[in-house]
Design a protein around this nucleic acid. Sequence first.
DNA 1: TAAAAAATTTAGATTTACCTAAATTTATTT
DNA 2: AAATAAATTTAGGTAAATCTAAATTTTTTA
Lengths: 220, 220
Amino acid sequence: MKYSSSKENYIKAIFHLQRSSENVSTNALANALQTKPASVTDMLKKLKEQKILQYERYKGVRLTAEGKKIALLIIRKHRLWEYFLVEKLQFGWEEVHEIAEELEHISSKKLIDRLDDFLGNPRKDPHGDPIPDANGKMPVLQQISLDAIELNKPMEITGIGNQTPELMELLQRTNIKIGSKLEVKKKFSFDNSLEIKMRNAAPFIISQFLAKNLLVNDEE
Amino acid sequence: MKYSSSKENYIKAIFHLQRSSENVSTNALANALQTKPASVTDMLKKLKEQKILQYERYKGVRLTAEGKKIALLIIRKHRLWEYFLVEKLQFGWEEVHEIAEELEHISSKKLIDRLDDFLGNPRKDPHGDPIPDANGKMPVLQQISLDAIELNKPMEITGIGNQTPELMELLQRTNIKIGSKLEVKKKFSFDNSLEIKMRNAAPFIISQFLAKNLLVNDEE
DNA sequence: TAAAAAATTTAGATTTACCTAAATTTATTT
DNA sequence: AAATAAATTTAGGTAAATCTAAATTTTTTA
Ligand SMILES: [Mn+2]
Ligand SMILES: [Mn+2]
Ligand SMILES: [Mn+2]
Ligand SMILES: [Mn+2]
């Protein structure tokens, strides 16, 4: 089966949203897809027909097993293309998402499997997110929010939560990147801000909100 | 400006067709695009509105300068992606066209220019066709049909005319490839067939029709 | 628990890219 | 130059993916 780009975008958005909420609401989807709730309702009815999701009106949606399988393939394509753009074409990690948003809809399965091999079967994309394998299995990386770790323990940034341009902007300013090594030196109880120290740089303070959006590896 | 995949396919098809005929006919386009003449007429009216082509009803079409510029960019993308698939992902040159037919519609200009550099700015695609540069200039390769060359002069196959699966099949059987070195030993006036000799192989005979579809370099 | 507010769906349109069948125009034959 | 054939366009639809405005259902609040 082959699905339109529009349908694939819906399937992927539902997949991501259903990890943080039981059933995914019409409004949440409309917001994620930059569209109107009425349009979402229309599409949900079509996707239900195709058994890609379970949907009862006014009750929100969940993907079926089939739906999840499709979502994981799209995510695989998205992340492999992002990796290609950064590693082979020298793009900055903040500019690849939009292009991958188009490339993820190229249909050839053989293409993506060959690309995977060409790239050396990477396990994480440039944002630190795990890349599903050819069977749709996604490695579970034990990532933990920087906000929750012990003091003075060396850590590596392996991912970021909310991937908005606003966060990107702040990361550039503070020079924090995927792969940066750092440790938390102190937590200030006044506003829960954290003092962090990166290798070869003076210590500085970041907000709790930012810390919650920085993921570090637990072991490894 | 950004055009739909469908419009881009029309523009590219007109570009190719208008090299062999003054004005491109509705039927020729319908045939090339595997669609119906009535659909072509509809689309031509829209593309005329957008000043991409000159069209008067019952008289056929030609691209405007703007239309040609768009066509050359699409052809550039198509051929660079084909080169990538063959050279980096180990695809066979007969299986890349279909995938490139999708990849050519990815919109990022920066992506294609980076890809061009990554590939080492190739001048020909895997079928021997020239690749337009970032400004849309397409090198004119002096290619001449094998049917028209002198006897006993060493030549290299640099391109093929009609790129159908049928021709591909015959080429595989005869083991003729882009880059093959050969010379024409004799022409038979009975059916205009040619005896050719490839390096390290016994001479064999090919039809005039096949010879007309094999392009060789004139000088170089 | 009855209003009010929020979320969601339905109704009715629009745009794009197609289609078939019928009408029209152009080209080719007698 | 008619008549016939071929090419092309027009008329009238359809399906996908959107939208706005109005109706309905669910949730929250007073
Ligand atoms: Mn991304
Ligand atoms: Mn997308
Ligand atoms: Mn091609
Ligand atoms: Mn195409």
